[in-house]
Amino acid sequence: MSDFDAKKVAEIHEHLHSHLPSESALRVKALETLLVDKGLVNPQTIDAWIEAYTEEIGPKRGARVVAKAWSDPDYRQRLLDDAPAAIDELGYLGKATAHLKVVENSDTVHNLVVCTLCSCYPFSILGIAPAWYKAAAYRSRAVRDPRGVLAEFGVDIGDNVEIRVWDSTAELRYLVIPQRPAGTEGMSEDELAELVTRNSMIGTDRDLGEG
């Protein structure tokens, strides 16, 4: 084979393979095709799920829950007493929030949520778990060294503040209510919801009035 031919063949080969999906992507396609063929999943359901979780849900629902709890003491109490029922009032109840516990930060308590086994997360109100929540480093360090993990996120917790680490499971997941920032007394729920960060509802953010 001449150099020219060899180059041409290499180009064709590269061209053919350049749009071949990755090994994982091919396996997912195979699995989905088989499940659809057997009538076990509906492709429209999968598409709708992806659209909802990547574009609509995010952590916005959780922020609405927190803002309502900040604004309405009765709602806050219902949320602490029976989180699934209180979340259902806003129409956000999903499989992952059917068993949910809400924990509240205070001047003397900071809550941090992890799933040491895998990545259990209340995704129907917080969207898909962030990359760091799924990392082995977070899952192993959050329990062993919560202050170190928090310091990495720029959160310095004073020695007078107790850190409570909650280990999520498929049966019980957690949502943190961060402290309402000072000087927000006149704000509407919509305005308050804008202040609530995703990380504050997991516990890797604390002082929402800062920055």
Binding site: P21, S22, S24, A25, V28, K29, I50, T54, G127, I128, A129, P130, A131, W132, A135, A137, Y138, R141, V149, E152, F153, G154, N199, T204
Partner: peptide, 14 residues
């Protein structure tokens, strides 16, 4: 951990 904060939850469609 902080270095990947803000990364999208999915890098690829699969």
């Amino acid at each position: 951990l902080a270095a990947v904060d803000g990364q999208p939850a999915f890098e690829e469609a699969w």
